[in-house]
Amino acid sequence: MSIRKWYLIHKWTSLISTAFLLMLCITGLPLIFHEEIEHLVGVVEAPPMPHGTPDISLDKVAEAARKQRPQDVIRFMFWEQDEHPNVTLVSMAKTMDAAPDDSNIVLIDTRTAQVLDAPPPERGFMYVMLKLHVDMFAGMPGMLFLGFMGLLFVAAIVSGVVLYHPFMRRLAFGTIRREKQVRVKWLDIHNLLGVATLVWALVVGITGTINTLSQIVIFVWQSDQMAEMIAPYKGLPPPTQLGSLQDSIDAAKKAVPDMHVSFVAFPGSMFSSPHHYTVFLKGNTPLTSRLLRPALIDAQTAKLTDTREMPWYVKTLLLSQPLHFGDYGGLPLKVLWTLLDLVTIVVLVSGLYLWIKRRQHTEQRICELEQKHAQGV
């Protein structure tokens, strides 16, 4: 492919995606530190108790949540032991099939079943940043559109690398021609910063694109592996009486002893069937803690129905989500992600500046030629 074609690819993929990429970079900055921001704004934590205080039965935790919000049903229970120890996050809604944004949260002490907080649905700054970053308040179409912008971003990076080599053949790496006009200096800065952040930009662009496919991936998993796991219950009427949640959790732990519980989907919710508690377990290492393994437990008998490793496409999604926000290496990696994000903003803005200046230069040149033609030169 000729250099001119690569230039056109770089030009148009960059121009089309720049505005949305700037929005993603800016909204992504606070999301990198969402855990730290939550602590700063005063998220309720469990009170201190003697070390080794045992947890209470999760049936009593569920009972406490239902008393707090008797008009709602429980859809999920979450545990984030590293971030919020001894706290059970109960997600409730009017119905099992309500939209995710219609959920209500109840925070309960896992040791005492005391309600710690029942905050109203989040609609503050972090909620706005997350929705803009994920789907621009447009649901699935917004997610897929941002995924397409991510693909354009990757194409802009690849074409930029192809153009960088012939452009810099006669210049030492990192050269910034300060003695030239301002546009040339910014061109050198744009190229240098773009190459310096090449790997990071590709990682974030690719993982971001993968993340926009999350709902599609979930649908494929439900239609594939999940359908196979619940096949023996196909056609059976939903149970009218559910068994013990605690016994179901214990059965999942016994079936997968080398993992611990991350969250539970209640019967009839998005990640389960009308007949099962689906217990999602995760590993204990930095890598395996990002991967989930479902264990389906019969909601009446608390007996294991099936448990399997997630298919490759779900694992890819699960691994890409924390990598996108630099959530693998603690605070140092988050700081690095922030610096690279800021540099990427400079690359995007400088690219837009160079395009505007080039257009102005072209228009000025056209005007000069028209004037000469009018004067008969």
Rank of each mutant, 00 (worst) to 15 (best):
V217H: 02
T197V: 12
F167Y: 13
P166T: 14
S262L: 02
K180G: 09
S244G: 05
G243A: 06
D258E: 13
T207D: 06
D250T: 15
Y233I: 00
K253C: 06
P274D: 08
H260V: 08
H190F: 00
F219H: 09
E228L: 04
H260K: 13
K253N: 13
R169V: 13
M168H: 14
V195S: 01
M259Q: 14
T212A: 12
T212K: 02
H260C: 03
L187A: 13
R177G: 11
P257L: 01
Y164T: 14
Q181P: 03
G268H: 05
G194D: 08
S248E: 02
S223L: 07
P267T: 10
L202P: 03
V184I: 14
L245K: 00
G174M: 10
P257I: 04
A255H: 03
P232S: 09
W221Y: 15
G174N: 12
G235A: 04
D247T: 09
A201F: 01
F219R: 11
P257Q: 01
Y164N: 15
V184D: 11
L198A: 10
W221C: 09
Q246L: 06
F167K: 13
R177S: 11
I218M: 04
S272Y: 00
M168V: 15
M259L: 08
A227S: 15
F219T: 14
L213Q: 08
M226I: 02
P166A: 13
V203G: 05
A227P: 08
L171T: 15
I218N: 08
A255Y: 02
E179R: 11
G268R: 06
G194Y: 05
Q246T: 15
I249K: 03
S262Q: 05
I189P: 05
